[in-house]
Design a protein around this nucleic acid. Structure first.
Lengths: 327, 327
DNA sequence: CTGAAAGCGCTTACAG
DNA sequence: CTGAAAGCGCTTACAG
């Protein structure tokens, strides 16, 4: 910046103004400064800026996993929007572990962010305290907690799974299992499971807890869940999965086992990732407003950081049941 | 830090030393400082640190896409290793566009990184100039350019595809197509195509350029490529895809079209993502050392940034042809 | 419309 | 083993 100033024959103060408040700089001076900037390929030092402004434009985004097109679409849209608003998203992966999430947050706090995006509603108490102490704008997403840290932008995991299971009953399935991603303190899974339970109870069924099973996130996990439930309950006629990735694994495992989907067993997913409508049979699933979620999260967080957000503390973006061939 | 200093009754200089060179601080003083740090939940300000050190511990990583488990595994491992070494990876997605990659790099340069990870060998001339001017340590990965910017950690896309196509010939296939991801100046695709060409020429075949086709990255792209090639050349008996994602899309499209794989047409992928061994038929593909690539990229870059790397400018991590059911 | 001074939170380099 | 001074590249707040 000093170089620019010398070249344009002004002080660096004026260069600074040319960047922030060009209206307050004489047109001729501005021209000289801009020319110098071009010639020297000037890129303002964000580090120094962050120090003077007592807060950086880095925005930590912590997600449980990257290995699902649904999260990558979400992150892509979120990043694009944050980027557009002049922020630098830094994506961290907690691997579905709230303790690790806390560690990541502590690390990111060293970069003096003014806002952060967190997935889900369950976090360690320290995570909450950390956010508060740092005076952070927080957007929790992918869920709709009753008492968000700050703002929640998501959808109801409970309602979505309840509606899916109720639909399965409407379509004639009677012995419906639930397959989920193993993780301690995962509110999204807990809510979906509660939705499964509620739908069956509402229908007068007595849900067997042994008809649910978890596994590590990934397609092999889906196969494992399928085998586990069928071993305990060979009469199961449908499994509602808490994730498309698991459901795809299960569909493929069915083929390997010689089970017809949906004739022998119906399979449903959660998320509506690209593969869901391409796999055979195509997957009945819950469509999530993934890209909209990314965009709204970004806009809301930016609004909070700049004190221009005056919307509600909970923003419900809804979901949609998509019936295809697998159920 | 001032608070810590007051609480421990020393100057912030001593606090700084307690952090960087604890051996030079009296044990009793150190104890007091550490206690104060715990009580105040001290997180050092990375922004200030970056300013004094004239370079931050942020490491931009630019990849073409996040929407493939192969890239997410790579990023996960790379991030973990960089994290472990005290750096903060910032992942940016270029969408297979070298001009956008350059824009991202300019933006990241504002954060004063000392090193960067770039995917592939083709970049804009400005990207190269930018890296040089900033004196950046650069690791180019996923490819092995003859003249890397700095260090390349990857594998030979040419050899991998040549070997896959040669294998297809060995297995009896004779009219072999090539399916790729559309992108301008994508050296990995160009190398793979050249490998396809070389393998067919070596076998005395005259490769038809009309037997290749590109599409946008994604499973639907694979279906599109399959249809395109079969429309032009109904006699095609195998298609070697430049990506597992495309190959999976093609396999699923075959099922929809009533084509048997590999009896009617063989399909091969590139990458060996998780789904490749789960889909039915399981996918014959090129296994890439994805996690090792992530780890070695991180170690090499860290070594370069700290001037402790004395290895070669090109690190070849190899590949492996994995034959499964689809060919 | 432009500039001189002080400060953001840390470290390097020098004294003691 | 500990401290006082100066500086990293920028901005805010005040003068002119």
């Amino acid at each position: 910046m000093r170089e620019i100033a010398e070249r344009a024959q002004v002080t660096k103060m004026t260069v600074s103004r040319a960047l922030r408040t060009p209206a307050k700089v004489a047109p001729e001076t501005l021209r000289r400064i801009r020319l110098a900037m071009e010639e020297l390929n000037f890129v303002p030092n964000q580090v120094a800026l962050s120090l003077t402004e007592r807060g950086s434009r880095i925005v930590p985004v912590i997600v449980p996993s990257l290995a699902s097109s649904i999260f990558s679409d979400f992150i892509e849209e979120l990043s694009r929007s944050l980027d557009f608003a002049g922020f630098t998203p830094v994506v961290g992966c907690s691997s579905f572990d709230v303790t690790f999430e806390e560690k990541l947050l502590v690390k990111y706090l060293g970069w003096q962010p003014r806002g952060v995006v967190l997935t889900g509603a369950s976090h360690t108490p320290e995570t909450r305290a950390l956010c508060q102490r740092a005076g952070l704008a927080v957007v929790q997403t992918w869920s709709l907690p009753d008492d968000p840290f700050d703002i929640a932008v998501g959808f109801s995991n409970f309602d979505a799974m309840r509606k899916m299971v109720a639909s399965l009953r409407d379509w004639g399935y009677r012995r419906i299992g639930f397959g989920y991603v193993d993780a301690v303190r995962n509110d999204r899974t807990a809510d979906r499971r509660a939705g499964w339970l509620a739908a069956l109870q509402a229908a007068g069924d007595t849900p067997l807890d042994t008809r649910t099973q978890g596994a590590a996130f990934g397609t092999p996990g889906g196969a494992e869940i399928l085998r586990g439930i069928l071993r305990r309950h060979p009469d199961t006629d449908a499994i509602a999965f808490g994730s498309d990735v698991l459901a795809v694994g299960a569909v493929l495992e069915c083929r390997r086992m010689g089970l017809r989907v949906p004739e022998d067993i119906a399979i449903t997913g959660f998320g509506d990732m690209g593969l869901a409508s391409i796999i055979s049979p195509t997957l009945t699933t819950v469509r999530l407003p993934v890209r909209e979620l990314g965009r709204v999260c970004a806009e809301t967080l930016v609004g909070r950081m700049e004190n221009t957000y005056h919307g509600p503390a909970r923003v419900d973006l809804g979901f949609e049941i998509v019936r295809r061939e697998s159920a």
